[in-house]
Structures are given as structure tokens and as C-alpha cells.
Design a protein around this nucleic acid. Structure first.
Lengths: 156, 156
DNA sequence: GCTATATGGGACTATTCTAGTCCTGATTGG
DNA sequence: CCAATCAGGACTAGAATAGTCCCATATAGC
């Protein structure tokens, strides 16, 4: 069903890594070593995150990255925006889309509302909530669903 | 951000079309004409929906499709399951995935919980809610967000 | 029974998207 | 200066998606 890209998944791991090293400047290599994601991929993701100001970069030797804000103020929605851009749940939920079927299609607005509701939920989930392995996610609907963490695909 | 496939979007339109013709048997051509989605695509989607028993098929001349259940009992989650299969928000939220990074990755379980919460929300959204252009979606978080329907991309 | 009209199932292709890599230039500490 | 490090973007390979088509099966009507 609904999916986030693998880069977003990595990006979350990377931000969690930085949150744990809060204050310290970490180079891309540090992060790659800490997260076991391939270095070029880490570099790419950090660039996206820097552009979205979720991380702050320090150039030059001994440079690297730190979190751009407090972990409690970075939400899952922020991460998605930074790494997946303004893509929406359906093509017609995008701001700039134009569709000749609009008048024929009674469904679009409903999906758009669903989209917004999901965004609201993701806005409430902060980096601090993602940090631990068995944290409770602070969204009403989530409280009912606590499952054992499943395995993750090998990657790199 | 989070996305559903275009087929799912079409599928919803198709189900809404059938709901409006409730009782009547509609052929794939009828549906294509009514939704302005290309016929071969409609045929493909109806096959998937039939396999998931969301629609019932009548074979032979004068055959076609009707809804398999009452519109009020078909949820957005049902449609996603029928048309996108058991895909999950991240690869590691899938039942059969195996990941060597599990112990290193503190994030996975959080995304899985988010995934479940979204599913719960989608379970509450029924075909009857999708039917009209400006319907209120019956999920708590959704009530705050009512926007003007946006345009839809041309497709066919 | 024959024929026209439908669906059922699956193969196939083309296009788009994604992930991942690499190169070149700019910045800065030692 | 030199080595380390980020910035930006080009590029490739692979996977996923959308869309089309073919052939078998079923059935209504004549």
C-alpha cells in the first residue's frame, strides 16, 4: 500500500544518528559508518537534508553536518518533504496539476482530504519519537497498534 | 510524499461509477465510457477488483460487473489492498522481509506503526464517503482539513 | 448449435521513477 | 599549499508502473 521511498527511510536513520550525536559535527563518512548505508548515498541524502535546512553543513576540513533544529521540532512530514518533494497521494492532489477530468471525477477531493489527514498525523510525529526502537507514536490512531519490529532488507 | 498508484486512483473512480449504477450490470466498455479511462486499463482494473471480490463479474453476452458488497462496506484500505497488494510503507514493514540491519536500525518499528495508523484511518473511509465531490471524510484528523478540490491530470 | 458479446488469465512492451555512482568545483583547517 | 570535506549536478542501471494485446472460456439470443 502507501509507500515512502527508500531514501526517506535512510534519511530518517541518518537524522536519528545525528540526533544522538547532538552538538557534534559528523562528516558524511561518520554517518555512513554509523548507519551502514553506502557513503555516496549518505552524501546525496545529506545534501537534500541540508537544502531543506533540516541539517546544517560545515564546509572545509573537519567539516560535516549537525541537526539544523531541535529533534523535537523535526517531524516525519518534514523529512518526507525534504526527500520526496511535493509529491502527493494522487497526481491531482498536487498544487500545480491541471486536469480536464475534474468535473467528471468525484473522487479527487476525497483523496486530497485523506492526503491532508495523513500529513497532519505525520506532522505530529517528531524525530524524538522515532529515536527509540519501541517508542509509542503520539498519534491517536496509532496507540492501538503496537507490533513487534520486523526485519529490514539488506541494503548497500 | 506518500503516494497511491494511478491504478488505485482509477479503481476508486470505477467503483464510484458502479456504486452510482447500483444493481445494474455494467460492462467494461460502459465503465470506460463513464469514467473516461482507457478501455484496456479499465478491463485490467476490473479483473483485479473481481479477484478481490470488490466487484462481481457476470460472464458472457450482456455480462459485466456489479459491486460485490454494499458501498458502505467497501473501504479505501480494501481498494488499496486489491490494487497494490501487500506493499508497505517501508520495505521492512513487509511480513516476509529479512534485514540484517534490524539491530542497528531504531527507526523501522516507528514507520511500521505509522503505517498501521494510516491503515486504520483508511479502514474508516468507505466508498459512500468517496462518492460525492465535497464529502466530509469520517476520520478524526481529517475534519480539520477541508480544501477546494484541485484539478486532475489528463489521462487516458 | 452458432455467433456475438463479455470476462479470465496472463504475457509482453515501453516508459517512467528510483537508487546509486561519479565528477568537478568551492571552502577551510592545518 | 594540501588534504579533507561539502555543493551541485550529470549520468547509469535497474526496478516498478502503466498500458496493450492475445487467446481461452462463458453465455444470451437467434
Amino acid at each position: 500500500m502507501l509507500r515512502i521511498s527508500r531514501l526517506t527511510d535512510y534519511g530518517t536513520m541518518i537524522l536519528v544518528h545525528l540526533a544522538r550525536r547532538s552538538g557534534q559535527v559528523c562528516s558524511a563518512s561518520d554517518v555512513a559508518a554509523g548507519t551502514h548505508v553506502a557513503l555516496p548515498t549518505v552524501q546525496k541524502i545529506l545534501k537534500y537534508l541540508a537544502r531543506a535546512e533540516l541539517v546544517v553543513s560545515v564546509r572545509g576540513a573537519e567539516g560535516g553536518y549537525t541537526l539544523g533544529r531541535e529533534p523535537g521540532t523535526i517531524s516525519a512530514a518534514d523529512i518526507l518533504d525534504a526527500l520526496e518533494g511535493p509529491v502527493a497521494i494522487t497526481e491531482c492532489s498536487q498544487i500545480d496539476s491541471q486536469c480536464e477530468l475534474e468535473s467528471l471525477c468525484p473522487v479527487g477531493s476525497a483523496w486530497q482530504q485523506i492526503n491532508k489527514s495523513i500529513r497532519l498525523a505525520l506532522d505530529d510525529i517528531k524525530l524524538t519519537d522515532l529515536r527509540g526502537p519501541a517508542t509509542e507514536i503520539p498519534v491517536a490512531a496509532l496507540t492501538r497498534s503496537i507490533g513487534r519490529p520486523l526485519a529490514r532488507q539488506p541494503r548497500s
